[in-house]
Amino acid sequence: MKKKGLGFYLRIYFKILAQDIKSKMSYRADFIISTIGMIFTNIAGFVSFWIMFRSFPSINGWGYYEMLFLYGFSLVAITPVQCLFDNNWSLRIAVYTGDFIKYCFRPINIFFYYQSEVFDIKGLGQLAFGIGTLIYSWNKIGLGFTPLILLKMIVFLITASLVMIAMQNAAAATCFWIMNSFYVLDLVTRFKDYAKYPVTIFSPVFRFIFTFLMPIAFIAYYPSLVILRPDEVPLLSWLSPLIGVVFFWLSYKFWMRGALKYNGTGS
C-alpha cells in the first residue's frame, strides 16, 4: 500500500474540520454559552493575580507583570490541546462501548483519524485572551522585540504545547488498560493549572515533581524564560524544545500501542 504523505492528511483534516465546525454552528447557543464561559474562566485567572499582588508586590522575585506573562504564555501553549486534542476526553467511552473499533478499519493513521474528528472552536477565545495577556504584560515589562525574538517565541510556544499534548495523550491512553482512566486524565488536566506559576515558588520536592515527573514546568516556566529573562536562561529552558518533541513522540507511541492492541468491547 502506498504510504500517505503530509499533503494527503492535511486535505483530509480540513475536510473533517469543515464538517465538525458546521455541526457545531448548528447549535449556536451552546457554542456562544461555552465560549463566554471560557472567557470568564480566563478573566477570573487574570483577576486572581491582580488580587494577589495587591497584598504582595512580588512572589519570590516574580512581579505582577512577569506572572501575567507566564499566565498568558500558558494559555497560548495549552490552546492546541484544547482545540485539536479534545477528543481524548471521549476516548475511554469509545473504548468501553466498542465504538473505537471503527477507527481500526480505515486505511489511515488511527491517531490522526480519531483526534481530527473534533475541533474545540471555543478554544480560540482562550488563544485570543492569552495573546492579549502576553502583549499587555510584554509592553508593561518593556521587553524588546525583533524578528529573532518572535521566532524564539513561536518555537518555544509550539514545543511547550507538545508537553501538554503529550501529558493528555498518555493519560487518555491509559483507558486501553485500566477501567477508571478518567481519574488519570482528570488529575493530569488539573495539574496544568500550576503551569502558570514559576516553579521556583514551590518547595524543592514539588520543583522536582513539576520538572521531571509531571513536567508542567515545561508548559510555561522554562520556555518563557528565554524571552522573559534572557540573561539568566537555565539549560532546561534551551532543552525544552527537545523535551517537548520527545515527550510527544513517546506519548504518541504509547497511545498507538493501546490502539493497535484494541479488539473491541472489554479490551
Rank of each mutant, 00 (worst) to 15 (best):
M1K: 11
M1T: 11
G7F: 11
Q19P: 00
Q19I: 03
D20T: 06
K22Y: 09
K22L: 14
A29M: 11
F31D: 05
I32A: 14
S34Y: 03
M38S: 14
N42F: 05
I43E: 02
I43V: 15
A44N: 08
F46N: 11
S48P: 00
W50I: 09
W50S: 13
I51N: 12
M52K: 12
F56Q: 15
P57A: 06
N60W: 02
G61L: 02
G63I: 07
L70G: 08
L70Q: 10
L70W: 07
Y71W: 11
F73C: 06
A77M: 03
I78Y: 07
T79Y: 05
C83Q: 11
N87Q: 15
N88V: 14
W89D: 13
S90W: 08
Y96G: 06
D99A: 10
F100L: 13
N109C: 04
F111Q: 13
F112L: 07
G123R: 03
L124V: 15
G125Y: 04
L127A: 13
A128C: 11
G132F: 00
G132V: 09
S137C: 05
F145A: 13
I149C: 00
I149M: 13
L150M: 12
T159Y: 09
T159K: 10
A160V: 03
L162S: 03
A171T: 07
C175W: 05
F182H: 13
F182M: 12
Y183G: 12
L185T: 09
V188H: 01
T189L: 02
T189D: 07
K192N: 11
K196L: 00
P198A: 07
V205N: 04
R207F: 01
I209C: 07
T211H: 01
Y221C: 03
Y221F: 15
S224M: 01
L225R: 09
R229C: 02
D231S: 14
L236W: 09
G244D: 07
F247H: 02
W249T: 15
L250K: 11
Y252V: 12
G258E: 10
L260T: 13
T265H: 11
T265G: 00
G266C: 10
